[in-house]
């Protein structure tokens, strides 16, 4: 069994994603959590590129790591939360949460036991479904109505954010 460059990259990106996701939930400082979450998003984007879904990789970086996480940082710094504000809490709650999450992971992974793992993702000639040309055609022909409705969603979210954030 030979180890290809794709496999090496897959394992590196997986370890990076899991490690930074763990750091998100264990960092005391909220700013560090945001920065680790950005690292997670970058490694997930790396996975998208590995799956040759270039469009979603770029959108993930621009929308998530670029826009949403800057919004998070902005709110944290606006509220001056960048100190370790979380009070000392019961460590039993922490342990119970970890056990509950671990049990969920265990059950979900165990349900995969009888799955036929014959299906693999291998690059074949002409598999360019993740490219902007194909996705754009699909988005603006078959899915043009949901696309337009999502613009209305954005408009209502914008109005909602302004109304909620306004001083009464």
């Amino acid at each position: 069994m030979t180890i290809t460059i794709t496999q090496i990259l897959f394992w590196i990106l997986s370890v990076a994603a899991l490690f930074s996701a763990l750091m998100v939930i264990t960092s005391k400082n909220p700013v560090h959590s945001v920065l680790w979450l950005i690292a997670t998003f970058f490694s997930i984007s790396g996975h998208y590129i590995l799956l040759s879904a270039q469009f979603l990789a770029v959108v993930n970086i621009i929308v998530y790591a670029g826009a949403i996480m800057v919004l998070f940082l902005f709110v944290i710094m606006l509220m001056n939360l960048n100190r370790e504000t979380e009070p000392q809490k019961n460590r039993w709650i922490k342990m119970a949460g970890a056990i509950a999450g671990g049990c969920l992971l265990l059950v979900l992974v165990a349900s995969l036991k009888n799955v036929e793992s014959a299906s693999t993702i291998e690059d074949v000639k002409g598999g360019d479904v993740g490219f902007i040309k194909r996705l754009g055609k699909e988005l603006f022909s078959t899915y043009v109505v949901p696309f337009e409705i999502s613009s209305i969603l954005f408009l209502s979210a914008m109005v909602g954010a302004v109304v909620i954030g306004k001083k009464e």
Partner: peptide, 30 residues
């Protein structure tokens, strides 16, 4: 890559998110 690798990776990330929601008290981190 076998599809099961991706399924397990996604499940692990999802479980880490759930543990975070259950254990953290800061609304922004949730």
């Amino acid at each position: 890559m076998p599809i099961t690798h991706y399924i397990i990776l996604s499940l692990a990330l999802f479980s880490i998110g759930i543990v975070g929601v259950l254990t953290r008290r800061n609304a922004i981190i949730i």
